[in-house]
Structure formats: C-alpha cells, structure tokens
Amino acid sequence: MSAAAAPSGLFDCRDAYVRAVEELAVEDDRIVAVVNDSVGSSKLGKFRDRFPDRLVNVGIAEQNMVGVGAGLANGGKIPFVSGASCFLSARALEQIKADCAYSQANVKLCGISSGVAYGELGATHHSIEDVAWLRAIDRLTVIVPADPWETAQAIRAAAAHDGPVYVRISRMPVPELDRDHDAFRIGQAEQLRAGQDVAIIANGTLVHRALDAAHLLEAEGISARVINMATVSPIDTAMLAQAATTGAIVTAEEGLAHGGLGGAVAEYCATHSPVPMRMLGFPGFLPTGSAAWLMDRFGLNAQGIAAAARDLLAVKAR
C-alpha cells in the first residue's frame, strides 16, 4: 500500500499530477496536454520535452483552450486541459458547460493551484467558487483529491472514465495520508477514521486538518468519524446516509462555505437524512493574506473544525 511506502514530509500534488499524466502518455498515445501559457505553473515542462507534439499551448486564452480540448476529444484524443483553476473555471465556464459537459466530450479539466493557494494575490486569483459552479453542471464529474496518491489515482481514473471530468489540483504542501486500502473509485468516498459522535466530511487540503481535529476531539472523549469526500459530483450518497446516523455532520473545504462540498452534503441530508450540520469554508472575497494565514483566519484548521464539532454536539445534546 502506497501510504506505508511514502516518504515522510510534505508534497505538492502538482508533481503527482504531472507524473501520472506522463505515465499515461507513455501507455496511451491518445493522451495530450492543453495549456494556457501555463507550462510552468502546471509543471508540464518535462511532459513538453518528452512529448513535444502532444503539448498544445494555446496561449493566454481560456475559452479557446477548453474548446480546443473538446475538439481534440472529437479527434480521438484524451486531452488533459490544465490551467490555474481560477481562470479555467470562471473564464471558460460556458465552454465547460456546452463543449464538454452538454456535448459529453471526453475532456479532462485540471484546475491547478486551486483554493486560496495564491493567497496574497487576492480574490481574482483565488479559486473558491469553482466547485460550486462546476458541480452545478450536469454530467460533469468533479474530483478534489487530498494528497499525492489520490491525485495520481484521480488522474488515472479520469483518463479511464469516458466523459468530462474536473480534477482540482492543489499546490499547497500536504502529507501523504495513511490508508489501509489502495482503491480509488470515482464517486466512492473514503472513511479514514471511525467515529460515532460526529462525522467530519472534508476533501482536498482540509482532509488532513479534519484528521488533526479528530485527534483533538479524541482527547476530549469525542469520537469523530473522518470521511474524505474526494468526488463531489456524483456524491457518495451511501456514505452520506451512514454519516448522518452519527447525528452531527461538519463539512470542511478550501472553498466557499456555501455551494461546494458542504452544499452537496446539505442537499442530500436535508432531503434524505436530516441532521444538524456545520459547513466550514470561506465566506466570499477575502482580505489580503497568505494561504496559510487565510486558512487560519477563517477557521479552516484543526481547531476550527474541532470547535464546530463541539458546537454541533451541544446542539445534538439538547
């Protein structure tokens, strides 16, 4: 199992992403990469050197980038369309909707440096709305991996999946998660820790913080379940139904507090298994600050998640 073999320390998931795309490109000559002048920020320099004919740089033109991706799929290719997630998702939203999802084009959209990775650059460069926007689009798979292993697995699963997929790839350093399995399936959530008092549902960079929160809660005698909900659309409803039996759900994500993962969980639970919830995320346009500062400032850390869990347990006890 990969987690046991993983070196200690922190990793940039972009490295796992480009490694997976390069490996796929060796195995399958249909794999191509499409970028918007983002060879460097997507870390695709090595891919370009190895497969110069299969790296399509459209320049700074996101609408065209996504349309070209759909055209490459029409021509039998499996394009990995990569750009900063703030521009890819917002600038090309109609192309993602019409050319990829509605047309069911086999395009893999890779939103790089997602969330608040570009901290001090401000709200123009934050990508905290992407999951809310994209999960609203029918027939578009949305995946938010948490660590290098899951990023590579998501890329491989996206390549094997016949249809459009959005994979959100962080540049924030994260550890490799400790797992007791080696299966990744689109639409299948992963329970990383058992617990009966409260369920913490997170994805991406927040999974690690959710696990830390569960440790804090354990010291207080609170048993917290931790679920990694990497696929936001389609969401794992069986896992949600089980989580609801704890009677308290906290969601946490590096994105808007409304409309993204938390929204997806709330929609399901409100209509199938009503349960008290707290939804952790960002409120909207954010003040100036580094990514790490912003995460702490808005309670997207172990302490913030644990506090939300305690708050919910008080509600549950009433």
Partner: peptide
C-alpha cells in the same frame, strides 16, 4: 464556440 472546437479537431488531425 464552433471555431475553437474545430481548431481542436484540426490539431488532432495535425498530430496524427
């Protein structure tokens, strides 16, 4: 929308 997609198809033909 049509021209960007057509350009992508033509690039696929160019690659192949």
């Amino acid at each position: 929308h049509g021209l960007p997609v057509a350009v992508g198809i033509a690039i696929a033909a160019q690659i192949d």
